[in-house]
Each structure stands twice: as structure tokens, then as C-alpha cells.
């Protein structure tokens, strides 16, 4: 019990917001041109560039679809999962 409710960041105590998803973004690695436009707009900071391709961390992705919307080459498709 932290006195005065002063708390420390602890990732293990954080909710894996991926559970919120009902629409699921999928990156088409061929289409992706590695421009990383989607990366800073993702509200969950869940997108990283791996081998210059967008890679989504589904632990936290809430399925909002912003990445699909901002992708200049429509390399990300929202799928029902």
C-alpha cells in the first residue's frame, strides 16, 4: 500500500489494452514503404519499424484504425478478428 497513493510505473500492472480490439490492423509488408507515418500517430505507441516495415504490437493496439487511415499507400488493412 503506497502511502499517499504515490505510485511507480510498473508495466506488469498495466492493462494490456489489446483486449479492447474488435477490428484488427494488418500490415501488408510488401506494400509498406517504411515511411513510418503511422508510428507517431498511433495512440498506443504500438508501431515500430522492423526491417524498415511497420510492425504492430498487438498487446496494446486498441484497433482504432488510425494507422490504416494515415498510411499513404494503404498498406494497413483493418480486419475483423
Amino acid at each position: 500500500m503506497e502511502h499517499g497513493a504515490v505510485i511507480k510505473h510498473d508495466e506488469t500492472k498495466g492493462p494490456k489494452t489489446g483486449a479492447w480490439r474488435y477490428m484488427h490492423p494488418e500490415v501488408d509488408k510488401e506494400k509498406c514503404i517504411g515511411c513510418a507515418t503511422c508510428v507517431p500517430f498511433c495512440p498506443e505507441a504500438s508501431i515500430e519499424m522492423k526491417e524498415n516495415k511497420a510492425d504492430i504490437d498487438y498487446d496494446y493496439c486498441k484497433g482504432c484504425g488510425v494507422c490504416a487511415e494515415v498510411c499513404p499507400v494503404k498498406a494497413i488493412m483493418m480486419k475483423k478478428k
Binding site: P15, C42, P43, E44, A45, D59, Y60, K62, C64, G65
Partner: peptide, 21 residues
Amino acid sequence: MNKELAKHFFSGHSACAGCAF
């Protein structure tokens, strides 16, 4: 998860899906 991007403000917050802030 993009550790560099999230270095001050981590994931796991409960802002609405598609929130801007």
C-alpha cells in the same frame, strides 16, 4: 511497443481508441 516513442508516456493508458492527445 515502440519503447523510444513511449519513453515518457507508456502504453496501457485507457484513453479512448483513436484519441488524439
